[in-house]
């Protein structure tokens, strides 16, 4: 039998599916659950486009197996909400932090986490933290500006 039933929480909802064991978490989210906001850019863990929050921390969904994600809490871009996520979206818009938008879901996941870990105190620090998310359109400047501005806020 090549299939397995798995259940996990995605964006706050308990979801189940019967899937091939080799299915990645990314493909589970995209193909089974229709949450296509998470994108596949390389399937070898380098580009970061597939980054989602798993049990609260950014993870490459292309490098996780669906069946190894049983019982986990996953948040995708469709479910990234709250004061920090909302502030980041607004800042991304105002700082022109996206152009084609393909890398944006992964950027948002990474940005939410680095703000939570208080790693947004300087441009250099933000750039190092963003090293795992590739963007081919923006040259990163708008992203850095956006994250810097949200990092400075004391009201979130």
């Amino acid at each position: 039998m090549t299939h397995q039933e798995i259940t996990l929480t995605v964006n706050g909802c308990r979801l189940s599916a019967e899937v091939e064991r080799r299915l990645s978490l990314a493909d589970l989210l995209r193909e089974e659950f229709g949450l296509t906001g998470t994108h596949l850019g390389c399937e070898h863990g380098v580009c970061g486009a597939c980054t989602v929050l798993v049990d609260g921390v950014p993870s490459r969904s292309c490098l996780m197996l669906a069946c190894a994600s049983e019982g986990r809490h996953v948040v995708t871009i469709e479910g990234m909400r709250g004061p920090v996520a909302d502030a980041l979206r607004e800042a991304f818009r105002e700082s022109h932090a996206l152009q084609c938008g393909f890398c944006t879901p992964g950027m948002l996941a990474t940005a939410i986490d680095l703000i939570a870990r208080k790693r947004a105190s300087s441009e250099d620090e933000i750039r190092r933290e963003l090293a795992g998310n590739l963007c081919r359109c923006t040259g990163y400047q708008g992203l850095v500006d956006a994250i810097l501005s949200v990092g400075k806020r004391t009201d979130l």
Partner: peptide, 26 residues
């Protein structure tokens, strides 16, 4: 043997590693 998968899964995605059984340590 699957620990974090950050080396194993890329190798499997490229089909350079083709185990018949993956054993998860989690």
């Amino acid at each position: 043997v699957l620990a974090g998968g950050q080396s194993l899964i890329p190798a499997m995605n490229f089909r350079m590693a083709r185990p018949a059984l993956v054993v998860d340590l989690a």
